[in-house]
Design a protein around this nucleic acid. Sequence first.
DNA 1: TAGATTGTTAATCGATTAACAATC
DNA 2: TAGATTGTTAATCGATTAACAATC
Lengths: 220, 220
Amino acid sequence: MEREPTVPQRRAVPPATVARLPGYLRALEALAAGGSVLTSSDALAAQAGVSPAQLRKDLSFLGSYGRRGVGYDVAHLREQVAVALGLSSERRVVLVGVGNLGHALAGYAGFAARGFALVALVDADPGVVGTVVAGLPVHPVADLGRVVATSGATIAVLATPAAVAQEVCDTLVDAGVVGVLNFAPCALRVPSHVDVRAVDLASELQILAFHDRRRSADGA
Amino acid sequence: MEREPTVPQRRAVPPATVARLPGYLRALEALAAGGSVLTSSDALAAQAGVSPAQLRKDLSFLGSYGRRGVGYDVAHLREQVAVALGLSSERRVVLVGVGNLGHALAGYAGFAARGFALVALVDADPGVVGTVVAGLPVHPVADLGRVVATSGATIAVLATPAAVAQEVCDTLVDAGVVGVLNFAPCALRVPSHVDVRAVDLASELQILAFHDRRRSADGA
DNA sequence: TAGATTGTTAATCGATTAACAATC
DNA sequence: TAGATTGTTAATCGATTAACAATC
């Protein structure tokens, strides 16, 4: 006799779909805030900035949470997308590099609002270590491994200079981090069980420049 | 009789390739800084964090800048990738939203170093308007269109609250902006000639959470 | 020449799109 | 029932990978 598993295990969700789920979550929250109880793939797709066909295809990897002829219950779908993303249990985040950008990231109000707990700050600068930022003390980088292990952080935000990013990343991984959001402008090498997402202002601007390259190609 | 065009026009570069070019540029700069004059697809791919096959395939869309049996001249390839990205002429950038994050972005040293000129700052907060940030005065949002037009900015960095992002974006596009780097957590609707890249901390963390979702799925 | 390494081809793989049967 | 809208299928499209001929 078969038993329903606690977490219904569907086919693997494709990476491209996973990357769009946060956008759907945001769109559902916006619709809920606007008073919508029920929505359609057309309305939700418009809010999220994708096509209705792509939205339905993406959601189909999670399960069948709509009703044909009717649409989707906003609150219920929101919950199901959150569960699919693994947001039902809190994730603990450590931030390394409390410089210009790191300071702004630490002050980001969205952490707690979205189920993430910023649990520790770490920096190499003796002038910053010991100060309190966003209500948290800044630990010395020498304590990085210990801080990660004792805080139980599994996700790290890396906002250090590129020159030390790989070294810091190695320590993070050794201490149990399995997800790294890398703001340092360099590629990181990690074991296959670790996931890295890179955010780089310069790269994004350069990609925009590519599309803008036809204009003033011969100078002014 | 055929003439060589000023800018050699090759087949269209696929979007996935364009998105990796900044990483190659960075890798080439790192190799040059390390004293390398010549490199190979193996070495360069390792530095950029991609496979040698993918690197060669990507570079093949730009032209034939290597020498079989020899490798790539680091300085020459660097220049060719920069040209392909449209970095030979300076791009002017306007930043809208000088809050927590916007302030940090304005202070980003990489703008000038990579051929981008931050030419104007704009904010809606009367307490911020008129102050000087990163050496630039902050203009009121009522002047946004005028500031963009007179400064000649074609790329905008959008760091406003989500609630006003679409409205600001519309004004930017009307004033001539063709590339938007959106830090606001919402989808933007733009005409087809405008390119939007989105960067969202919460989305990135949620994608990392997905890969971390197997652990502690049943709580602690 | 022999060894090395590119640039390209062809095969595989994954993502997107469009159409429609299922069903509310 | 008639109209609406999902979930799925099949076709198309684009991206990745691996192998190797070209050539330095």
